[in-house]
Computed example of a mutant assay.
Amino acid sequence: MTTPRPRIPVRAALLAICTDHSTPPASRTRAWLRGTLSAWHLSYHEPDLSLIATELVTNALTHGSSPVTVSLHCDRTRLRLAVTDAGDGQPRVLDGDDEATCGRGMHIVNALCEQWGCTRHGTTKTVWCTRRQLPAASAPASHSQDAVAA
């Protein structure tokens, strides 16, 4: 007799970023992400997803225009993080200059994600990335209970 795998429900969450708020947008995004992943018992994804979200939100605010929204979607096999803005720039992994103080963000996203891309919707664009959803047995030991509880 085999033990049934826990069912991981499909979940989605959305954050609208207002730039006139006193808390910096990247900080708010990380706090929202931390709370969402904790509520979903997926905290072991928080360090990498917080870094990815910070890069994507910073790019949206630096190279795009408001409004900016962040969404997180979870299904049985994948987590999908997406940042939407009204800018018309296209993200890309730049050839880095060792002395440059910026331009490495998409290298980080590329390294930490399974896939990433950019989709246009009329006057907006969405930069998205996916990561594999770990089954409970593969989750880091300190968080395996989180995954089982989901």
Rank of each mutant, 00 (worst) to 15 (best):
84 T>C: 03
38 S>H: 14
59 N>S: 10
58 T>H: 14
70 V>F: 04
57 V>M: 04
50 S>H: 04
93 V>Y: 06
58 T>K: 14
52 I>E: 11
65 S>D: 13
103 G>W: 00
62 T>H: 14
47 P>V: 04
55 E>V: 01
102 C>V: 13
41 H>Q: 12
78 R>T: 11
102 C>F: 14
54 T>C: 10
51 L>Y: 03
80 R>Y: 03
39 A>W: 01
75 D>A: 00
92 R>C: 10
37 L>F: 03
101 T>M: 11
89 G>H: 15
72 L>C: 03
58 T>M: 12
57 V>K: 00
48 D>A: 14
53 A>N: 05
39 A>S: 15
53 A>D: 03
47 P>T: 02
85 D>L: 03
70 V>D: 00
63 H>D: 00
37 L>V: 05
60 A>N: 02
40 W>G: 07
70 V>H: 06
44 Y>E: 02
97 D>E: 09
101 T>K: 15
48 D>L: 13
65 S>R: 13
50 S>F: 02
34 R>C: 10
50 S>G: 15
33 L>F: 09
42 L>T: 08
42 L>N: 05
102 C>K: 04
88 D>Y: 13
78 R>P: 00
57 V>F: 00
76 R>C: 10
87 G>Y: 04
73 H>N: 09
51 L>R: 06
37 L>E: 07
40 W>H: 11
77 T>A: 12
52 I>H: 06
37 L>P: 06
64 G>C: 01
85 D>C: 09
64 G>F: 10
36 T>N: 06
78 R>Y: 12
91 P>S: 05
79 L>Q: 01
33 L>N: 08
71 S>C: 01
68 V>F: 06
78 R>I: 03
37 L>D: 08
81 L>F: 00
72 L>A: 01
60 A>F: 06
75 D>P: 02
77 T>V: 08
70 V>N: 01
42 L>C: 14
67 P>T: 02
92 R>Q: 13
34 R>Q: 15
65 S>W: 00
68 V>M: 04
42 L>A: 15
57 V>I: 09
72 L>G: 02
40 W>N: 04
39 A>C: 08
103 G>M: 09
65 S>E: 14
92 R>F: 12
42 L>D: 09
57 V>P: 01
91 P>D: 05
96 G>W: 13
48 D>M: 10
93 V>P: 07
93 V>A: 08
44 Y>F: 12
49 L>D: 10
60 A>K: 01
90 Q>E: 10
66 S>H: 07
100 A>R: 06
89 G>A: 15
53 A>G: 08
39 A>P: 05
42 L>Q: 08
56 L>Y: 02
87 G>F: 10
67 P>V: 01
81 L>D: 04
79 L>D: 00
46 E>M: 11
69 T>H: 02
68 V>K: 04
